[in-house]
Design a protein around this nucleic acid. Structure first.
Ligand SMILES: [Zn+2]
Ligand SMILES: [Zn+2]
Ligand SMILES: [Zn+2]
Ligand SMILES: [Zn+2]
Lengths: 162, 162
DNA sequence: AAAGCTAATGTTATATTATTGCAATAGAGG
DNA sequence: CCTCTATTGCAATAATATAACATTAGCTTT
């Protein structure tokens, strides 16, 4: 009874599994590092994991209200800060929105592919590109601490549609 | 009487020349493509070129007021849109701010190195990294249209200071 | 030059995104 | 249970950005 209806990585996959694994991983990480994976934080991560799209803070706030939490901006922003800080989510700067992390590896330099039609956000691990960047930077005497690459384009599903 | 006091590319350089060249290039480009390089647009580009730092729209607005222009938000945002659209400036998403383009090549995929201490923003041309990204994307069936890489770190001058 | 058209700018209002400061509450640790 | 700290709730406001419409400037055509 495997469900593979949701799209991810621009591919079909078992999204229920995808979601529960990510939650479990976050829980394990928090236990290990004595972080508080509170109901609020868990809920926000779940909301982000529902879809492989970036959600704005105020969209999350609406969903939190539905779930019985407070719906004041700081509530969402603080939970999101926690999730981003510990690598459970990322901020997509060009959308002012947040997406759940889909890579198990903590503290990575992600590449995001953002479909401008369906707004799906897929995260990939940076390949050698990161090395090139560091090299280019080093040549200019710059110490890279964190990189963020956001690619806008059209995904497989959308490229065929008008 | 060469002046090399300003830092750029984390290096000393003749900033007056740097500025006037960029203005001239923009002027030439606009003439060629019949774009209106109006006093307002020129002024905003000049303001961005003053420093190799990203300026927020409202900072620009303050400077515009000093220069006798209107200081309502749309004035700055429209001029910035024009400059960004035609490649004379870029938006630094993680700063919600704008920086003058320092590369002559029109329509490129820039890399920005942002010093978190002095806030200098240096633009570099992407090397082979772009190819890697497109390759990674293609593997996922994604058509890259535009990429933006922002690296946070510490520049040469600041790395030595506490 | 005058009229007509289009692009750019001015202006007002409002939408969207994000933070500050403080009070109340929940959870960890003794 | 008590204390301390982290988290959440809440109110106000800051910072960033856009929409809608009026006015002006710069061309084009007559
Ligand atoms: Zn999934
Ligand atoms: Zn799509
Ligand atoms: Zn310069
Ligand atoms: Zn610096």
């Amino acid at each position: 009874m495997e469900e593979k209806s949701a799209s991810f990585g621009f591919e079909q996959h078992d999204h229920n599994l995808c979601l529960s694994k990510a939650i479990q991983a976050a829980e394990d990480y928090c236990t290990k590092y004595k972080l508080q994976f509170t109901p609020l934080r868990r809920k926000v991560l779940e909301l982000l994991l529902q879809e492989h799209r970036a959600l704005g803070a105020y969209a999350i706030l609406d969903l939190l209200r539905d779930a019985g939490f407070s719906s004041q901006p700081p509530v969402a922003y603080r939970a999101l800060s926690f999730l981003v800080e510990h690598g459970f989510a990322h901020k997509i700067e060009r959308l002012n929105a947040f997406v759940a992390c889909t890579l198990s590896d903590t503290s990575h330099s992600p590449i995001f592919m953002i479909c401008r039609k369906c707004e799906t956000v897929v995260e990939a691990q940076s390949l050698s590109s990161n090395l090139n960047i560091s090299a280019a930077a080093k040549a200019k005497g710059f110490e890279v601490e964190q990189t963020n690459l956001e690619a806008k384009g059209v995904c497989h599903s959308c490229v065929e549609t008008v």
